[in-house]
Structure formats: C-alpha cells, structure tokens
Amino acid sequence: MNIFRLVGDLSHLLAIIILLLKIWKTRSCAGISGKSQILFAIVYTSRYLDLPNFVSMYNTLMKIVFIAASYATVYLIYMKFKATYDHNHDTFRVEFLVLPSFVLALLINHDFTVLEVLWTFSIYMESVAILPQLFMVSKTGEAESITSHYLFALGSYRALYILNWIYRYTTEDHYDLIAIVAGIVQTVLYCDFFYLYITKVLKGKKLQLPA
C-alpha cells in the first residue's frame, strides 16, 4: 500500500458517499444517471467474486462497502426515489458498453477462467461505466455542484491509481497491463470534465456547458 493507492481508494469511497448522501438528503436523484449506477453495480459484482480469497481486512471491508453502496444507490434511484429519476435524459445505450467490454474480456485476459474473465470484464466495464452519466450532463448542459464533486472524486480515483501503478512498477517491478490501459482510458474520459470542474466549479460557478 502506497500513498497514491490509499488516497485513490479514499477518493473512490468519498465519491460513493457523496452520491448516496446527495440522494438521501435531497430525497432526489435528479441529474444522476441510473444507467451508470447499474453499470457500477455490475462492475463491483463481477470484480469482487473473489471475496472468499482473503487478502486483508482492509481489502475485504472495502469490497463489501463498494458492493453494498452500489446496490443501495441503484435501489434509491429505481425504487425509493423513482419519481425523481430523470429517465428522459438518461438515454445512453448501455448495450454498446456492456457487450464490447465482455467480448474484449473474452479475447484479452490474464487467464481464460470464469473468475478471471469476469474480473477483466469488470476492469473494461468500469473504464466506460461513467459515459451514461457524462452523456446525461452534456444532454442537459449542466450539473449540480454536488454532482460535480462526485464526478471529480470518482475521476480522481483512477488517476491516482495510475500514479500507484507507476510507483509499483518502479519499486516492486510489477505491472498489470490490462488495468493500466483501462485505467488510462477511464481517466482520459474525465479530462474534459476535470477542465470544466477546475475552471468553473472551483471558482464557485455552476457547471454549465456552453449552449
């Protein structure tokens, strides 16, 4: 465990908590893509099937929190606060993300076993899972500040993981090309948003796209 990994994980955890609190406190999931949240629930489920293989208390606890929080979020959006769900703007075709991720996982993986293919699928799936949310923001042309903070924390997490991978490559001589390439793709998808976040939201303005 190095500082980049730890801050990355905490940023990831913070993002999930921000989103849950936002929905719970405002009793609304307006501006949130339910489709992205379903994709994240799929990501954690397929990745953490290795939960019985104990690594550390930290590892087990985080996995359980990520899985539980993702299902709680999906429940809040599609059941409890369903009336506030903005489905007219959540129109990204997720099959265009799920199917290619799965096919790619079948073709490029570390080991052709059920667990490994599902783990690889989760890595590919995660890298593009935010697209329905970013699509929704671009469609409505704006995002609430709290939604922007959520996206910033979530995007920062994989960027910090890239630093962690560079660190591990230099200190432990270890690297995972699948995670690295997918992690870079994932981070690049947030670049446009990062720019808007720094130039607008941090200066107290609302994230609004030019008309």
Partner: peptide
C-alpha cells in the same frame, strides 16, 4: 518485470 494481476488492489 513481472506482469499480472495485483490481487490486493480494489
């Protein structure tokens, strides 16, 4: 260089 999955990562 060792390539492969980092089992401790999330």
């Amino acid at each position: 260089h060792r390539s492969g999955k980092s089992k401790d990562e999330l």
